[in-house]
Design a protein around this nucleic acid. Structure first.
Lengths: 240, 240
DNA sequence: GAGTGGTCTAGACCACGAT
DNA sequence: TCGTGGTCTAGACCACTCT
């Protein structure tokens, strides 16, 4: 087979781990031994081991060796896009309000600002097939000369809105997912007349220095929103 | 500073990307040029580029060059552990029932089994501070001679239960998160007397060949469950 | 054909752990 | 002191793209 040597090493050791021949905590053979085993140079062996480490199979302790890692059973990769987590995706966005407000105490804490700092509030409604499916609130600290162009805000995704200020790469993001019942205002906006709960996704954006630069809360009709995640697996690294 | 050369390269290029000097789609200098720039050998430069690629900053096209990648704004790392996503974590588990049942049509589809294949059903209740906080259902295809030891099942986490059969490394997992109102039975188990919704987490486990080996559904009282995710960031790779 | 990234080698020196 | 992993070099050959 035409597989490069380092990938053969990866596959071989993976197989040994998956089959149980190597168990968590076990030491691999030393790199020099692996060089002889696979008839490869040390750099090639190390490239294979680096991939295994990146995929969470092994770790290494300098001066001691490489060891099989305990698999992480609590980490998943979640796909979240406020406009595309619905059973059907958002095809219309209605801008309800853009305003500059004084922060509530919740905002002061979340955005780590003083109580005199003004905040931009954006309220939007997302539609799928003509039906309102989500009610969306965004808050950003207000800076003088900030361009609040309605057209942009109407269609933009939260990271896009914020990225006008900072490079997208610089942003750290956090999500908190919960469920709750809608209040009267949200019931009205989302046409909820019966006992339908909401999926609530709170999104916090931070800049490179961990300073909060945006808070978003999206209330989804639970019949239009399911979130999907999978075991944060392996095979995301460069090979292939 | 004592940073190894390849990490200096990583930091330098990251800085150029974060500051906007290099924008998505831009080509980096060729590897040979970078060798001269940083006074390093090609392997060292490539080690740095490999890290940048692993962290999602760049990608490379053989024969063409290395390019700055569009940042992925929809992928997050979610932490989910059925016993530890609650405001307080589970300190007691009550085993309601272990039974072997004939599959419902939903189970036939989810576990990809025939309608004559028996299924093990496990029903549990999770407690925090004496209060029931989650109602938990697990389904696994039944195999002859399967050891169903009550004590194990009572306390085990889903992946742990299934791993009696397969190596933990071999398991692929999927989560589907939604919100719904409790039915009469769940209201009773979770002491819900008012309009309190549930966070529902459906967990599917697959073996290495993508065959389903377990289905779990956990119904959390929404006042005791928030899920947490953060931008699937970078800096998880080996360096440091 | 010249330039690019992908793979690979056979050395080297270092800091660290075990003894 | 010896073996381990961590870093690094200066070459090499290949397949590929561009022109």
């Amino acid at each position: 087979m035409g597989l490069p040597i380092y990938l053969q090493i990866v596959e071989d050791i993976k197989e040994k781990i998956n089959s149980g021949e190597l168990k968590p905590g076990d030491a691999l053979y030393s790199e020099n031994t692996l060089c002889k085993t696979y008839n490869a140079s040390r750099m090639t062996v190390r490239k294979g081991l680096a991939i295994l480490a990146g995929e969470g199979y092994i770790y290494s302790i300098p001066g001691k060796g490489n060891f099989v890692k305990e698999p992480d059973s609590t980490t998943y990769t979640l796909y979240y896009d406020e406009k595309n987590n619905l059973i059907n995706s958002v095809d219309k966005t209605k801008l309800l309000e853009v305003n500059i407000i004084m922060p509530t105490s919740k905002l002061i804490e979340a955005l780590q600002i003083t109580k005199n700092k003004k905040v931009i509030m954006i309220r939007r409604l997302f539609y799928t097939d003509g039906e309102p499916v989500a009610y969306d609130l965004k808050y950003l600290p207000y800076y003088k000369g900030m361009p609040i162009v309605e057209k942009e805000i109407r269609y933009a995704t939260f990271p896009e809105i914020v990225s006008k200020k900072t490079s997208l790469f610089a942003i750290k993001k956090e999500l908190i997912i919960s469920a709750q019942m809608p209040d009267e205002e949200i019931r009205r906006h989302l046409n909820i007349y019966n006992e339908l709960p909401l999926m609530v996704v709170e999104q916090k954006l931070y800049d490179i220095e961990d300073k909060p630069i945006g808070l978003g809360i999206t209330y989804f009709r639970s019949d239009y929103c399911k979130l999907y995640a999978q075991a944060s697996f392996r095979d995301k690294t460069s090979h292939e």
